[in-house]
Design a protein around this nucleic acid. Structure first.
Length: 380
RNA sequence: GGUGGGGUAACCAAGUGGUUAAAGGGUGCAGACUGUAAAUUUGCCGGCUUUCAGCCUUCGGGGGUUCAAAUCCCUCCCCCACCA
């Protein structure tokens, strides 16, 4: 196995507590304390928030998306403007998703073959080609700190044969992707590439895929093929079927999840990183998170509620605004409503992860997590 | 005073004899959302009940024609535009 930089490993496992891991991930744009939740900024923006506001939520790293940024504004534009960090004014770490998930979610507009995916742009219908080579080059041009390999994410549920084909293809693509990254000196410059474990609901395929990727020696590993419509138990089972086959001293990233309880349950399964559109999308749609579960600001009962979204929570929204005002903004279609709720929701997720890290350090993560989930899931 | 237009569900607005408790939209209420084609989207929205069903009351007021009227006729009230 290739050695990480001497004296400064990419990932440092600081502590473990009944499966939950407290770690530290080093990237070219800063160190990340794990477990970590990463807000999604698909099109070079975490919707409705400025970088300063994103920072204020406690976010350590954000996502960008290869497929979307490739279509608009295009990698050449971003590179010309100094890379994604300079382009969008975010100087923290950025992880770029490969677009493999778009090959799944935009299925009607694509065709997959051995060398990649051919898309019909959802913007103007133009034909776009995305293979391991293109996918790496785009993420390289974007200046990504953590590039994700191009993978094939089959729908849920997928039968064994379909999932096996996707795994085999994903492994071949991963190998080629990593080869391009090595050739380009991407890793030497301190940037990272993560492989992605597929295999759908089939434990043997999860294992096979994980082992295949581990043999290639990636700086980190992701678990994909989750959050594609499966029930929560299934999601957790897929994570549980994957993590045992991944190296202890490398970060594990579960892609596209999840709800607060799901995050805690997956931390307990040894996952270190997560991303999800949930806090931002739901904020735009009026949902805000509380320790007692999600609430909808549109509800009539909040019409004159003077309380903040969560009493005592230290974020800009909760410090300054009532539910009644936030409801008014939402009912009126005012942009600020989306901003303030997004800020709160992301902070809520960040706060949850901070608490998780703290309790792993304390050594009481299982008990704390169980209590937290019990309260969150209790009927109102 | 004259001519023309119009009054539909607590808002806007279709509908000019039955398939209309009455299109659409808005508002309101509730829900969905998990590597973002989402500031998107779904349901309910006259009342009551035993709510994949039944009953009652609705289309400015009153009267009439008809088996059947928001739709046709008579009459009254109100609003708008233009002309005096």
């Amino acid at each position: 196995m290739r050695e990480d930089r001497p004296g400064s490993p990419v990932f440092e496992l600081l502590q473990s507590c009944a499966g939950a891991r407290r770690g530290r991930l080093r990237t070219a744009h800063g160190t990340i304390e794990t477990p970590v939740f990463m807000p999604v900024g698909t099109r070079a923006t975490v919707k409705s928030l400025t970088p300063a506001q994103i920072r204020e939520t406690g976010a350590q790293i954000i996502l960008g998306n290869t497929y979307h940024l490739n279509l608009r504004p295009g990698p050449d534009v971003v590179r010309a403007l100094g890379g994604l960090h300079a382009f969008m004014g975010w100087d923290g770490p950025i992880l770029t998703d490969s677009g493999g998930f778009q090959a799944f979610s935009l299925a009607k507009l694509r065709r997959t073959d051995e060398d990649g995916v051919t898309f019909q742009s959802h913007i103007d219908g133009a034909t776009v080609r995305l293979g391991p080579r293109e996918c790496f080059d785009i993420q390289d041009a974007l200046g990504s700190d953590i590039a994700m390999v191009l993978d094939e994410c089959p729908p849920w549920p997928s039968d064994h044969a379909t999932a096996a084909t996707a795994v085999e293809r994903s492994l071949r693509w991963a190998r080629r992707f990593l080869g391009h990254a090595l050739d380009a000196g991407f890793l030497e410059s301190g940037r990272l590439v993560f492989g992605i474990v597929q295999g759908s609901i089939h434990a043997d395929l999860r294992r096979e895929c994980a082992l295949g990727l581990v043999e290639m020696d990636f700086p980190g590993y992701a678990i994909g093929g989750v959050s594609v419509g499966e029930p929560e138990a299934e999601m957790l089972a897929q994570v549980a079927a994957s993590t045992p086959h991944l190296p202890v001293f490398k970060p594990r990233y579960v892609m596209g999840v999840g709800t607060p309880p799901q995050l805690l349950r997956m931390v307990a399964l040894g996952a270190d990183m997560f991303d999800c559109v949930m806090p931002t999308r739901l904020a735009r749609h009026g949902t805000f998170f509380t320790p007692d579960g999600p609430r909808n600001i549109k509800n009539e009962r909040f019409r004159t509620d003077p309380r903040p979204p969560v009493e005592g929570l230290d974020n800009y929204t909760c410090r300054h605004f009532s539910r009644a005002y936030l409801r008014h903004l939402h009912q009126s279609g005012e942009m600020l409503g989306a901003t303030l709720l997004s800020l709160h929701n992301i902070h809520f997720f960040q706060d949850l992860m901070a608490q998780a890290r703290h309790h792993i350090e304390l050594g009481d993560f299982p008990a704390w997590s169980a209590a937290w989930i019990a309260r969150y899931e209790a009927a109102e």
